[in-house]
Design a protein around this nucleic acid. Structure first.
Length: 792
RNA sequence: GCCGGGGUGGCGAAAUUGGUCAUACGCGCCUGGCUUAAAACCAGGUGCCCCUUCGGGGGCGUCAGGGUUCGAGUCCCUGCCCCGGCACCA
């Protein structure tokens, strides 16, 4: 018998699949659209390095599901691409020296090789990379559609500045006040930047109108909902008589309006400039500048009185106007009414600065000190006071969100150029569609300097205005790489289209994505941005759905030394040595066998020997059975029944429960049982079943064994189906309990009447030892399982 | 503080609607076989405690403490611990 030689077998079958183009998926011809299609996708890799075991987990899961679906009769699209623009790639290039394009393209070639070596099913005809002009041309084209609708706009606003990466960073990728990419502490800066108006979709993003059959982890929806942070309340107008001005505040507690005893402006509030004296202005400037700094939660609030007063619309009370650091300019209106009796922060401030505190809600949650509203339950009071304000023209019901618009321009080189021209006469002028793409210019020194590197290429920068022909300059910021990844899954469907980003018919056929796998770290970033994009593209008429991802699954982190593997942390284990040593099948099996796929795992290769042993045992036992067991009716012996049970377990675990490790255990059990006697009745059937069931996990060795069992093209065979008749047992093991404790077990025929079961139970000597001399108070019978005698 | 997810052998972990002495499968460990030897491979054993005439018998065990139930890893309550996310958002 041959030895198991994974390198040889794997190379052989990979060549066959490539030669046959076994996993390339044709698009449906117009008018003929089969129903059972499936779009399997995992988040695309950054080619800032090569693959590590985290990627191996992610893509192997997708691969198992792809094989499983295919063999269940589905047409499965499973493309791949590279998120090759942006900070990760550029920082890698700076680290390693060289041009980002060279680094990225070198890594892409290497990753493709790694992916082929692992035997993953990928339709390479649809590959896209964000940095290729054929792709980013359409990123720019889409940007212009957003711009036309006012959904991409420029404004000065407080933004997060990463001093290390020398660029603005989106809120979504500032973690604990630090840049998600490089870990540096971010600073607050007031800069003019490009934004996408994602806030216009806040309410819809809060709803998850998933396509039929869709499901998202509750956890992820909660994270997005918290991030969007919808608060319901009221906007209330306060009058500043001496300035003849109105200032609006947002509050979620209009019921406490009578308890407002002071009024606070954020340091950045425009009114501060008007009313502040020198001291106030100095305080405001200093505090605004300190914004980005990390502040301990227990740090004391600061503030300064402006000398002016605002009038409470509900009772005419004159409230001193303060400027304080605890009010944020970019939430609500940047001004608050302070109710120290019922707000912890206001109370802390009031106590520190000796401002009066007036309670307006009693222990019974009813309004007090609130004139005509006294006695109302607080909840009713909210509505009543808002209604009164509305009648007086002093306020209205309002909703506020924590979500901010998506800051998407970057002062960096390696990104998609923003197709806009700045003209002194005409303002912001879009580059005409037929002049796209605006190619990323070559620059001498692309490293970040705080000013956009693109601007250093003078020849590129200066262009005539497309509108008036006068002198103008190009926008020199580039796009956040998350713009690229907000629509890549649509481009896969129609990757070569030179006329449009994609064909609507094809996108509507394949999408929404049936099953998306990726890290939960993108819950408030990529996964939110992509939903926003799809909603906008739907409104433009480019596609016919409003949610991109039907089913979502998050794989756990593969960690090393307690932290997530990543190139920048240097704790990376790559698949290459493992594949060299054990073969791709063993690596695939091992990474999935390590534990539940949605749970974090600590990488170690201690247990890989066990998997290798298993694959070798499978090899030996199957070949033995192929030799010894006759090709005949498998019969209905124990081994055949075990095989049918295994079909049920593997199928249910992978299909319904998305468990990748327990099916491996199930097949191990079957192989162990087969190993006991490879000439037993049904041994050949058991061997074939084990090989067939394991194919999605270990496609090479199973294909080879399938061939040696005298068959062909396992990857195209339909998935095994269990015979219900062979799952039913003629007899079963009856468990007999006395007072809930198991006292005996006996093999009895299936289908006995309940009283017959009880009779047999009582006849047992071991049971009688615990029952005799006592009264049986109750008898519980679970048909097909057990009898429980309750004695007292 | 708020929200979410968890605590099962030495380790990774199983246990389809509460029902087969909980711990499948694998790792590790122990014993034996093969071998000059080692590795590899193969066979057997492996929760804790007590009793045993060596056939086996009994008790306790899923973070802790209560509860529901004939029966709880699974359901309910209280507490402890761990992991992740958010956090001056009015």
């Amino acid at each position: 018998m041959d030895r198991y030689e994974p390198q040889q077998i794997e190379a052989k079958w990979q060549r066959v699949w490539e030669d046959e183009r076994a996993f390339y998926v044709p698009d449906p011809p117009p008018g003929e659209e089969p129903q059972n299609h499936w779009y399997q996708l995992e988040m695309l890799p950054y080619p800032s390095g090569t693959l590590h075991m985290g990627h191996v987990l992610n893509y192997t899961m997708g691969d198992v599901l792809t094989h499983f679906r295919r063999r269940n009769g589905w047409i499965v699209l499973r493309p791949m691409g590279f998120d090759s623009f942006g900070l990760p790639a550029e920082n890698a290039a700076i680290r390693e020296g060289g041009h980002p394009r060279d680094i990225v393209e070198g890594n892409i070639a290497e990753i493709r090789r790694q992916m082929r070596r692992l035997g993953w099913v990928i339709d390479w005809d649809r590959e896209v990379s964000a940095h290729e002009p054929s792709y980013y041309r359409w990123t720019q084209w889409l940007f212009l559609r957003f711009f036309e609708r006012g959904l991409a706009y420029r404004k000065a606003a407080p933004v997060n500045w990463c001093p290390n990466d020398q660029t603005v960073v989106a809120n979504e990728y500032v973690i604990d006040g630090h840049c998600e990419r490089c870990g540096a502490k971010v600073e607050a800066r007031n800069l003019e930047q490009w934004f996408f108006k994602i806030t216009a979709y806040a309410d819809e993003l809060l709803r998850f109108d998933l396509p039929p059959g869709g499901s998202w982890p509750e956890r992820t929806m909660t994270i997005q909902r918290n991030w969007i942070g919808r608060s319901e309340g009221a906007e209330i107008i306060f009058r500043v008589e001496e300035l003849d001005q109105d200032i609006a505040v947002f509050t979620t507690r209009p019921d406490t309006l009578f308890g407002a005893t002071f009024f606070v402006l954020a340091p950045e509030h425009p009114l501060v400039e008007q009313i502040g004296d020198a001291d106030v202005l100095a305080y405001a400037r200093e505090t605004a500048a300190r914004r980005g700094e990390e502040r301990a939660a227990e740090e004391e609030k600061t503030g300064v009185f402006t000398g002016h007063y605002a009038t409470n619309p509900v009772n005419g009370a004159r409230l001193p106007i303060w400027v304080a650091d605890y009010v944020l300019m970019d939430y609500g209106t940047g001004a608050i009414m302070a109710v120290p009796a019922h707000d912890e922060r206001d109370r802390e401030f009031a106590e520190r600065f000796d401002v009066p505190i007036v309670p307006v809600i009693d222990d019974d949650e009813r309004l007090i000190n609130s004139a005509q509203f006294d006695g109302l339950p607080a909840e009713e009071g909210k509505g009543a006071i808002v209604e009164w304000l509305r009648e007086q023209g002093k306020g209205a019901h309002a909703v506020s969100y924590r979500l901010r618009d998506w800051s998407m321009s970057r002062q960096r080189y390696w990104g998609c150029p923003i197709p806009i021209i700045h003209c002194g006469e005409c303002g912001l002028v879009p580059v005409p569609d037929d002049e796209l793409p605006v190619l990323l210019p070559e620059v001498q020194d692309y490293r970040p300097k705080g000013v956009p590197p693109l601007a250093s290429n003078e020849e590129w920068l200066h262009v005539p205005c497309p509108k008036c022909g006068g002198p103008a300059t190009r926008e020199a910021d580039t796009m956040d790489t998350f713009v690229d990844s907000s629509w890549y899954f649509l481009r896969y469907v129609d990757a070569d289209n030179g006329e449009a980003p994609f064909d609507r018919r094809l996108v509507d056929y394949w999408c929404p994505i049936s099953h998306y796998i990726g890290g939960i770290d993108h819950a408030t970033g990529h996964l939110l941005y992509s939903r926003f994009f799809v909603k906008v593209l739907n409104e433009i008429g480019l596609l016919g759905f409003r949610e991109p991802f039907a089913r979502l699954f998050h794989q756990g982190w593969v960690q090393m030394g307690g932290t997530k593997m990543s190139k920048s942390k240097g704790n990376v284990a790559g698949p290459d040595e493992m594949v060299d040593g054990y073969g791709a099948d063993a690596v695939r099996l091992y990474i999935l066998f390590m534990g539940p796929a949605d749970q974090d795992m600590e990488w170690n290769d201690d247990g890989v020997e066990g998997i290798v042993r298993f694959v070798r045992r499978l090899w030996r036992v199957v070949l033995e059975a192929a030799e010894r067991a006759p090709q005949s009716d498998p019969g209905d012996g124990a081994l055949v029944r075990k095989a049918h049970q295994t079909i049920v377990r593997v199928t249910a675990d992978i299909e319904r429960r998305l468990q990748f490790h327990t099916p491996i255990s199930a097949v191990m059990e079957l192989v162990n049982e087969l190993a006991e006697d490879t000439a037993a009745e049904g041994a050949r059937f058991a061997a074939e079943t084990a090989v067939s069931l394991l194919q999605p996990w270990a496609p090479h060795v199973t294909e080879e064994l399938w061939q040696r069992l005298g068959h062909e093209r396992l990857w195209e065979q339909s998935w095994p189906v269990a015979d219900p008749a062979l799952l039913e047992r003629a007899t079963f093991e009856l468990v007999v309990q006395v007072n809930g404790k198991v006292r005996d077990r006996m093999e009895v025929p299936a289908g006995l009447a309940e009283d017959e079961l009880v009779e047999r139970a009582k006849a047992s000597e071991r049971v009688r030892a615990h029952v005799d001399g006592k009264k049986i108070r109750q008898t519980i019978v679970v048909p097909g399982k057990l009898v429980n005698l309750v004695v007292g």
